[in-house]
Amino acid sequence: KTEWPELVGKSVEEAKKVILQDKPEAQIIVLPVGTIVTMEYRIDRVRLFVDKLDNIAQVPRVG
């Protein structure tokens, strides 16, 4: 699995749990929505963009 659209609106902790069940090797990085990030693709990275309430604001994707 490479993306988790069902996690939008969920808490960071809930999202981490689901992603690590699907992809145990994932390196999860939590960032505020709108953060500028590098464009290199990494198969072991999932970025979680969160709103001010620490809920997932964008679809988490591998990369």
Results as ranks from 00 to 15, higher is better:
Pro24Met: 02
Val12Thr: 06
Ile56Met: 03
Ala57Ser: 10
Leu53Ile: 09
Gly9Asn: 04
Ile56Arg: 03
Leu53Asn: 15
Asp51Ile: 00
Ser11Asp: 07
Leu48His: 01
Leu7Ala: 03
Lys17Ser: 09
Ile29Cys: 13
Val30Asn: 04
Gln21Glu: 10
Val8Ile: 10
Leu31Met: 12
Glu13Gly: 10
Ala15Arg: 01
Val18Arg: 12
Val62Glu: 07
Val30Glu: 06
Tyr41Met: 12
Gln58Asp: 11
Phe49Gly: 03
Gln58Ile: 10
Tyr41Gly: 14
Ile29Asn: 08
Leu7Tyr: 00
Gly63Glu: 12
Ile29Lys: 12
Ile36Phe: 11
Val50Phe: 05
Pro24Tyr: 00
Phe49Ile: 11
Arg42Glu: 15
Pro60Met: 00
Ile56Ser: 03
Ile56Ala: 00
Glu3Cys: 10
Thr2Ser: 12
Ile19Lys: 02
Lys16Arg: 09
Gly9Lys: 01
Leu20Val: 08
Leu31Pro: 03
Arg47Cys: 14
Gly9Thr: 02
Pro60Lys: 00
Glu3Trp: 05
Ile28Met: 08
Leu48Gln: 00
Gly34His: 08
Asp54Ile: 01
Lys10Cys: 14
Ala26Phe: 06
Val30Leu: 05
Lys17Trp: 07
Lys10Trp: 08
Ile56Phe: 03
Val12Ser: 08
Asp54Cys: 08
Lys23Pro: 01
Pro24Asn: 01
Leu31Arg: 07
Pro60Leu: 00
Gly63Leu: 09
Val33Met: 11
Leu7Lys: 00
Val46Asp: 01
Ile29Asp: 13
Gln27Arg: 12
Thr38Lys: 15
Val62Asn: 04
Ala15Val: 03
Ile56Trp: 00
Leu20Ala: 11
Gly9Ala: 02
Gly63Tyr: 09
Glu13Cys: 07
Leu48Arg: 00
Leu31Lys: 07
Val37Phe: 09
Lys52Trp: 06
Val12Gln: 07
Val37Thr: 14
Trp4Ser: 02
Ala26Ile: 14
Leu20Asp: 04
Pro5Lys: 03
Pro5Trp: 01
Met39Trp: 09
Leu7Asn: 01
Asp51His: 01
Val8Glu: 02
Arg42Leu: 11
Glu40Gly: 08
Leu20Ile: 07
Val30Ala: 05
Gln21Thr: 13
Ala57Gln: 07
Leu7Gly: 01
Ile29Ala: 09
Val59Leu: 06
Glu3Asp: 07
Glu3Pro: 00
Val62Ala: 12
Pro32Gly: 04
Lys1His: 04
Ser11Lys: 13
Met39Tyr: 10
Ala57Glu: 06
Thr2Pro: 02
Val62Ile: 13
Ile36Met: 14
Glu14Trp: 10
Met39Cys: 15
Ala26Thr: 10
Ile19Trp: 00
Gln58Trp: 06
Ile29Trp: 06
Ile56Asp: 00
Glu6Met: 04
Lys16Leu: 04
Val46Leu: 07
Glu6Ile: 03
Glu14Pro: 03
Ile19Met: 02
Val8Tyr: 06
Asp22Ile: 02
Val18Gln: 11
Lys16Gln: 06
Ala57Tyr: 05
Ile28Ala: 03
Pro24Glu: 04
Ile19Thr: 02
Gln21His: 14
Trp4Ile: 00
Lys17Ile: 07
Glu14Thr: 12
Ile28Pro: 05
Arg45Leu: 15
Val18Met: 10
Glu14Val: 12
Leu53Val: 11
Gly34Val: 02
Ala26Lys: 04
Val12Asp: 03
Lys1Gln: 12
Val8Gln: 04
Thr2Gln: 12
Glu25Phe: 08
Glu14Ser: 08
Arg47Phe: 13
Lys17Val: 08
Arg45Phe: 15
Ala26Asp: 01
Trp4Lys: 03
Thr35Phe: 03
Ile28Cys: 11
Ile36Gly: 15
Arg61Phe: 11
Asn55Lys: 15
Thr35Arg: 10
Glu13Lys: 10
Thr2Asp: 05
Val12Cys: 09
Ser11Tyr: 11
Val18Ala: 11
Pro60Val: 05
Leu53Ser: 15
Glu13Tyr: 09
Pro5Ser: 03
Ile28Arg: 00
Ile28Lys: 00
Val12Ala: 10
Lys23Trp: 14
Pro60Tyr: 02
Arg42Ala: 15
Leu31His: 09
Gln27Glu: 14
Lys17Leu: 08
Val50Lys: 07
Val8Phe: 06
Lys1Gly: 05
Leu48Asn: 00
Thr2His: 09
Val46Tyr: 02
Val8Pro: 03
Arg61Ile: 09
Phe49Met: 09
Gly9Glu: 00
Glu25Lys: 09
Val30Ile: 09
Ile28Trp: 03
Met39Gly: 15
Glu40Phe: 05
Val18Ser: 09
Lys52Arg: 12
Lys1Tyr: 09
Val30Thr: 09
Glu13Ala: 14
Ile43Met: 14
Val33Asn: 04
Leu48Trp: 01
Asp44Lys: 06
Gln21Leu: 10
Val8Gly: 01
Ala57Val: 13
Ala57Pro: 03
Leu48Tyr: 00
Lys52Val: 09
Val33Pro: 08
Ala26Trp: 04
Arg42Pro: 15
Glu3Gly: 04
Trp4Thr: 02
Lys10Asn: 08
Ile36Ser: 15
Glu13His: 11
Val37Gln: 13
Ile19Leu: 05
Asp51Ala: 00
Gly34Pro: 06
Asp22Lys: 04
Val62Gln: 07
Arg47Thr: 15
Met39Phe: 09
Arg47Ser: 14
Lys52Met: 11
Asp54Met: 10
Val59Lys: 05
Pro24Ile: 00
Arg47Met: 15
Val18Thr: 09
Thr35Ala: 13
Ile36Thr: 15
Asn55Gly: 04
Pro5Glu: 04
Asp44Asn: 12
Val46Trp: 01
Lys52Glu: 13
Glu3Phe: 05
Ile43Tyr: 11
Asp44Ala: 07
Glu13Met: 10
Glu13Gln: 11
Gln27Val: 09
Asp51Gly: 03
Leu31Ser: 13
Lys1Glu: 06
Gln58Asn: 10
Glu6Arg: 03
Gln27Ser: 11
Met39Ile: 09
Gly9Met: 02
Pro24Asp: 03
Pro24Leu: 01
Pro60Ser: 01
Trp4Glu: 00
Ile28Gln: 04
Val18Asn: 05
Leu31Ala: 14
Val50Pro: 02
Asp22Arg: 04
Ile28Leu: 10
Ile28Gly: 01
Ser11Ile: 04
Thr2Leu: 11
Ile29Arg: 08
Glu25Val: 04
Gln58Glu: 14
Thr35Met: 07
Lys52Leu: 09
Thr35His: 09
Arg45Gly: 13
Asp22His: 06
Pro32Lys: 11
Lys52Ser: 14
Glu3Gln: 07
Ile43Gln: 13
Lys23Phe: 15
Thr2Met: 14
Ile36Tyr: 14
Pro5Arg: 03
Pro32Asn: 07
Lys16Glu: 05
Val62Met: 13
Gln58Gly: 07
Val8Leu: 13
Val59Gly: 02
Arg45Gln: 15
Thr38Val: 06
Arg47Ala: 14
Gly34Trp: 06
Val50Met: 03
Ile29Gly: 03
Lys16His: 05
Arg42Met: 11
Pro5His: 02
Ala57Ile: 09
Val18Phe: 06
Glu40Pro: 10
Ile19Ala: 01
Glu25Asn: 15
Val33Leu: 11
Leu20Tyr: 11
Gly34Thr: 08
Val8Ser: 02
Lys17Asp: 05
Leu48Cys: 08
Leu7Ser: 01
Lys16Tyr: 05
Ile19Tyr: 01
Val59Asn: 01
Lys52Phe: 09
Asp54Thr: 06
Asp51Tyr: 01
Glu3Tyr: 06
Val59Pro: 08
Lys23Met: 15
Pro24Cys: 04
Thr35Leu: 05
Asp51Val: 02
Gln27Asp: 14
Met39His: 15
Val18Glu: 06
Leu53Thr: 13
Val46Met: 06
Lys10Arg: 12
Val59Trp: 03
Lys16Phe: 05
Tyr41Val: 12
Arg42Lys: 13
Val46Pro: 02
Val59Phe: 01
Arg45Ala: 15
Arg42Ile: 12
Lys23Tyr: 15
Pro32Arg: 10
Glu13Pro: 10
Ala26His: 04
Ser11Cys: 07
Asp54Arg: 10
Ile36Val: 13
Val33Glu: 12
Thr35Gly: 12
Val59Glu: 06
Arg47Asp: 13
Asp54Ser: 13
Glu25Thr: 12
Lys16Ser: 07
Ala15Gly: 10
Asp22Asn: 07
Arg42Asn: 10
Pro24Gln: 05
Ile28Asn: 03
Val18Ile: 13
Ile28Val: 11
Glu6Phe: 06
Lys10Leu: 10
Asp22Ser: 08
Asp22Cys: 07
Arg61His: 10
Pro60Ile: 01
Tyr41Leu: 11
Lys23Asn: 13
Arg45Pro: 11
Lys52Asp: 09
Gly63Ala: 09
Gln21Phe: 09
Phe49Val: 08
Pro5Gly: 00
Gly9His: 02
Ala26Cys: 11
Thr38Gly: 14
Ser11Leu: 02
Glu6Asp: 12
Ile19Ser: 01
Gln27Trp: 05
Gly63Phe: 08
Arg61Ala: 12
Asp44Ile: 00
Lys1Val: 07
Val12Tyr: 04
Val62Gly: 06
Val18Gly: 06
Glu6Ala: 05
Asn55His: 11
Pro60His: 02
Asp54Asn: 15
Pro24Thr: 05
Ile56Gly: 03
Ile36Lys: 14
Gln21Val: 09
Lys23Asp: 06
Ala57Arg: 08
Arg45Ile: 14
